[in-house]
Write a protein that binds this DNA or RNA. Structure first.
Lengths: 353, 353
DNA sequence: GCATCTTATGGAAGCACTTCCAAAGGCATG
DNA sequence: CATGCCTTTGGAAGTGCTTCCATAAGATGC
């Protein structure tokens, strides 16, 4: 049990450019030039250096590079964990694009609002990241000046602020389209299952719903918009949808026979409430959701599709654009959600008649 | 349009420890000692330096620190994006714990198997990360030696290899418990909806199912295990569950009236297939799933719960332990899933009778 | 054959920190 | 008062790279 090699002695030899330079009989400058594919190196030298590097299994030291290059090659994403489906899909786009660029993605998952500031501070550490992606949360007013002063490229995704680039979804238009679809199917009484109005998307989707009614000559009625009591995720959750629909069902015969629901996940709850009371979807009640999460397809839910993956890709592209040109004018892009007609709205059923 | 300030001129002044040292009339060594809370600094000096640092709004340069400290303060997670629910919940545990430790989490999302090697190589870059979390995928044999040579702490989550620490779920026991639950409710013919056998969890869950049958004196029959044809995510997807159940339904009266399904998401599909054919759950057919994803609760699905969040937390703790003691014996931890009885198994229905 | 222009190369300086070592000062002890 | 010890401090050396500058070597033109 003696002379156990210490961990550090066993560790992989740390090969530096100095080792390569010595071994190849060149200077470190030349080594660096070869490894970074600069010009002004003869093919023979280039070849020799590359061979030595390979033989010694050279790995550049990431942080030494980043320090010398004055580049972080890293982007951080500040993202609320509760967004779930949306988050996953957008993040996939972000990841794929980032990975192509050879950048790293560092993830700051926010579970409660207080963490936002902590994570922003971390991301703002000098030289740490080249850019920030800020997701789905209202940007706290008090940190806006710090962010602006830091002059660090930042793109907001699924949220908006006049001071920064943003990628978002046209909630008003989407809600308008969803509601209009139901109206065009002949419904005159269309209810809305909404989320808490503290959230901007909820507010905007309500607006779109209301506009749609009014453009079709129907007066908006507060009594036909319900939210349920579950506060989790600002009301964008299944229970809230269930509860809201329960309330509607209690209205008895006056209950609307068509609903725009402000998210697919709430729609799942709403449909469950209906089914449990013996009401069939779409025969008795028509439903249109919002988001087009993966489950929507399986549930045959008619819904408004957000191009989540593309939003992620675009977010990175916008960020890169701003990185290379900080003086670029601030750009706000809104994607228009598209109506995906499946079965819960009853459109196909009607046509068959 | 003249004399527009260049971006770099406007940029935040980069304050270094040299600036602080000059301003506070001390040496850089002292500044470093103060900022790192070392001993051997008089309270007055400490106070003065801290004040200057604050006044100048000093931010340490992350990468200079990491280079000098020979520590990455970063952990990377290599994770298949398709795991979805499981992934999100485990990652939440990982994130929370990492964040407490002041480490960064860099995410490598894998969309197809080839990417695994790319990402492993990146994570292996010298000095880049202090540890790796490898999720839910079979560790490719060919990279095991590289990984071992690198002597970089790595913990496998939801997958196993003899060479590395791992945190996983006792699939055999879980499947055994699930099947036993159905048997104890009086079923003699229990089918299984499984995923593709290329996946270890699928293999192990089949084993548990088989053991359970045999310990109850029932002979195992291959005909009662079906998989469906959808290959996505190794068969752990909704369509596959739907297809498998369709096949069962085609058996006619010989079809089992109870099923253990190897994942909740498949169970969703299976239930849909049953409902569409007019078969009620649990009145006509009993179902037990596996995972306890968020939707399971809403669907009232009886299932085997995996403690995903805790698995994430433990994964980080294990990683940290190995980082501080590389010679530690390799540890494999398996969490036992617990049976969550809801409605789809029919247990409550029975009791009511 | 010489002046001029390229092109290739070595290595110092820089990036912003940590850490170690030597030195200085303060205090107690004999 | 001299000696030894401890605390505090400054700053050189180190971390591993990139980049710039000066120089050397080779190519070109007349």
């Amino acid at each position: 049990m003696e002379a156990l090699p210490k961990a550090c002695e066993v560790n992989v030899a740390k090969v530096t450019i100095y080792d390569i330079a010595r071994e190849a009989g060149v200077g470190i400058g030349t080594v660096s030039r070869v490894l970074n594919d600069h010009t002004s190196v003869t093919p023979e030298t280039r070849k020799r250096v590359k061979e030595v590097a390979k033989r010694l299994n050279y790995q550049p030291h990431t942080y030494a590079q980043r320090l010398a290059r004055r580049q972080a090659e890293t982007i951080s994403a500040i993202i609320p964990f509760f967004t779930n489906y949306f988050f996953i899909e957008v993040l996939q786009g972000v990841q794929d694009r980032i990975s192509q660029l050879g950048y790293d993605l560092v993830l700051y998952g926010v579970n409660n609002v207080d963490q936002v500031e902590t994570y922003v501070s971390r991301a703002l550490q000098r030289g740490k990241v080249d850019g920030i992606l800020f997701f789905s949360m209202k940007l706290p007013e008090k940190i806006v000046p710090r962010l602006r002063d830091a002059r660090l490229p930042m793109v907001l995704v699924d949220t908006v602020s006049p001071d920064f680039d943003s990628i978002s979804v046209a909630n008003v238009e989407g809600a308008y389209a969803a509601t209009t679809h139901l109206l065009e199917l002949g419904h005159r009484s269309v209810g809305m299952v909404n989320a808490k109005l503290v959230s901007t998307p909820a507010l905007e989707r309500l607006q779109g719903y209301r506009h749609a009614l009014e453009s079709h000559g129907i007066t908006y009625s507060e009594g036909l918009v319900k939210t349920g009591s579950s506060n989790k995720q600002d009301g964008f959750n299944r229970e809230a949808g269930y509860e809201a629909m329960e309330e509607f069902i209690e209205m008895g015969p006056d209950m609307p026979r068509a609903f725009f629901v402000s998210s697919d996940i709430q729609a799942m709850g709403a449909i469950a409430a209906l089914t449990e009371r013996g009401l069939r979807v779409p025969e008795d009640v028509a439903i249109v959701g919002f988001d087009d999460i993966e489950l929507a397809k399986h549930m045959k839910l008619t819904t408004m599709r957000q191009p989540m993956y593309q939003m992620g890709v675009l977010a990175i592209e916008r960020l890169v654009a701003r990185m290379s040109n900080p003086e670029m004018e601030i750009l706000h892009t809104t994607f228009s959600p598209t109506l995906v007609v499946r079965e819960t709205c009853g459109a196909f059923m009607r046509r068959r008649n």
